[in-house]
Design a protein around this nucleic acid. Structure first.
Lengths: 365, 365
DNA sequence: CCGACGTTCGTGTACGTACACGAAAATAAT
DNA sequence: ATTATTTTCGTGTACGTACACGAACGTCGG
């Protein structure tokens, strides 16, 4: 096969030749700049279409001195919010990949326990006048005025992790909470059969409680859709410390010793797991079903603390939605859209992964 | 924050200035080309290190007329081997991303039912003298002489899907078969409890039977590791048509009507599912446990045929290892290594995903 | 001492696109 | 008709790197 298969690429030069104009004119057409007669413009556009012209990004980015600056506004990582480590890693991964194409990413962080910090940092983001923003709109009320200002200034923004549908972002990248709860229910039912089930919401006042509720909805919907009549109890714990969680669980199990599975609607499952670990060791003697068949424990997020209990066979499954990929895709989409001028998907739901102790080691978070 | 944060990048020009030489000399040093005095070379290398010089890939690829040609050698897609559609899609995805950087990918296919076709196509690949090869070494005996020739000619190659560890490839990207079987066992046990289990291998003579065995090993290992004494039966079906599969299953269920779960070691699970569907509709009246509690069905691969049965609630779980990502990463790694000159991971095991009817719609294959 | 040859290095052009600048043509104003 | 103004377009240079070509210098044999 001596086929050279010389993949012929046509550039502005060829377009200019065919249109009997200079490459500068072609360039003007390509970039929608003024100063070209309508007739000429049409002719050139025609030729561009005919040749299926694909600009050489290498040359384009090289010649353009323009530097794109993106900004990210996400929760700071803390003990309470390990979760955000992953999106940050994804953002940094994307940054390292496109840095060489003249893109910088400035990162701003807010405190999930402090709405004011969001507003403050959002202000700083605006002042830096970036070419695009990646934001986790955890505080809806505070996010709306922020993105309105962005729209005024024509700064595109993408949402990750939480969506605010009416706020026409460039795109949304995040989990499908309802279906993740739905899947959680399936896993729970699959292992429990007819047994009693406990749903646990652990969140502070300030937390995005809506997230948890949406998962719970999905969870309950599954049982309804499948005509299962499992007894589903639920407790809301508004104090995230171990003691308070243990106390609540202890009380609940005293009332319902026959609970067979626990579904925790967020990553705080490790606290619940700690309770069960102690229990396994003989603590909480007042909880009657100590020593019985172990309780199935299912929750959320690939965090070190959670993996630990996965290994110890206390947590059974973790549901994850690739938080790092969320950050990665967010930046990539900004790049796609702003630098390359290509369209992006409006809504991108992340896959809903099931992590067990048998596969967590190859899970790419 | 008026910080301009002007990320200062130094280029060959600056290096040349500092070394009191021309950029051509710097270029020679960077590319390890001869014709530079040792003293000059050392000096320039020193400066390169000091400045932490990062070549501008845009300019580099633009200026270099060099075109990289990669070749892929994977099984052709057929009804029997839908699986390979996904890696091919991944390859094409990667190709479209790096095409603009002067990389072409020529695809060669062999017939999984014909070892000779592998040898023939491998020969064609060699004749095309590519700059790198992505190969699925399905036929080990035929692959070894092939990659030996590659090494002779200094053509790097990466393995996907199957590894041949001693053949020092650039890297391996593929599934961890053992652990996928291990996970399958967990899922099976989780839903079955103590029940009887059936392992089904469906493969033609020529198939890579080793793959299936490895999964089965993992499957059995899990039960051993966890001290479970489930009765595990096994059937080998060497004729892949529906009739033959149905006959074998029918016979097995006649002997063991109390089998509670079936684990199929590859994507032919749809054939097994078809059997259960018919059975549900009242066929195979000779199989005693018709109408009883449905049998749990777990197998492999995100194929349309399989998804269909997932939806119909006949298949319970599919284990997938992102075959498209395997193709994608394979090409990306060739690019990383050959074009960018960056090192790549030697072994990359794909995540082991669990696909159920509750999450398949957001699964990215 | 001269030419042949090897070593070491610099000059110059090219890659495909972006854009500043100014020229030419068309139109309007005088 | 002439000048002023606007519209339309071309020329030329730059981006950072790759590489062909040849210049300058030294070495060596005769």
């Amino acid at each position: 096969m001596g086929k050279k298969k010389k993949a012929e690429f046509y550039g502005v030069k060829e377009i200019a030749r065919r249109a009997n104009v200079s490459i500068a004119t072609v360039d003007r057409v390509i970039h929608n700049r003024p100063g070209v007669a309508v007739k000429t413009r049409d002719k050139i556009n025609q030729i561009i279409k005919e040749l299926n012209y694909q600009p050489n990004i290498l040359a384009s980015r090289l010649a353009s001195r323009r530097v794109f600056r993106f900004a990210t506004l996400i929760p700071a990582v803390s003990d309470e919010t390990d979760y955000w480590q992953a999106p940050l890693a994804g953002i940094e991964q994307a940054e390292s990949e496109i840095k060489q194409y003249g893109v910088t990413v400035d990162k701003y962080f807010f405190d999930l326990n402090d709405k004011n910090s969001f507003t403050r940092e959002a202000q700083r983001v605006l002042e830096s006048d970036p070419d695009g923003i990646l934001v986790a709109p955890s505080f809806i009320d505070e996010s709306i005025p922020f993105v309105q200002k962005c729209r005024q200034r024509n700064i595109p923004y993408v949402f990750i992790n939480s969506d605010i549908p009416e706020q026409e972002s460039l795109c949304y990248i995040g989990p499908d909470l309802f279906h993740s709860g739905y899947l959680g229910a399936r896993l729970t039912s699959y292992g429990t059969g007819e047994g009693k089930i406990l749903v646990v919401n652990i969140s502070k006042e300030i937390d995005n409680h809506h997230h948890l509720l949406r998962k719970e909805e999905g969870f309950r919907a599954w049982f309804a859709d499948h005509g299962k009549a499992n007894e589903i109890h639920k407790i809301d714990i508004r104090e995230t410390g171990y003691e308070s969680v243990a106390a609540a669980l202890s009380r609940t199990f005293a009332d319902h010793p026959d609970i067979r599975a626990v579904f925790v609607t967020n990553s705080r499952i490790s606290t619940v797991a700690a309770f069960f670990e102690k229990r396994r060791e003989g603590k909480y003697l007042d909880t009657p079903n100590k020593g019985q068949h172990p309780v199935i424990l299912i929750g959320y997020d690939f965090l070190e603390k959670n993996i630990e209990y996965l290994e110890k066979e206390i947590i059974d499954f973790l549901i994850c939605q690739q938080p790092d990929e969320q950050g990665y895709l967010g930046i990539r989409n900004l790049y796609q859209s702003q630098v390359l001028g290509k369209p992006v998907e409006k809504v991108h739901f992340m896959p809903i992964d099931i992590v067990a102790r048998e596969n967590y080691s190859v899970y790419k978070n």
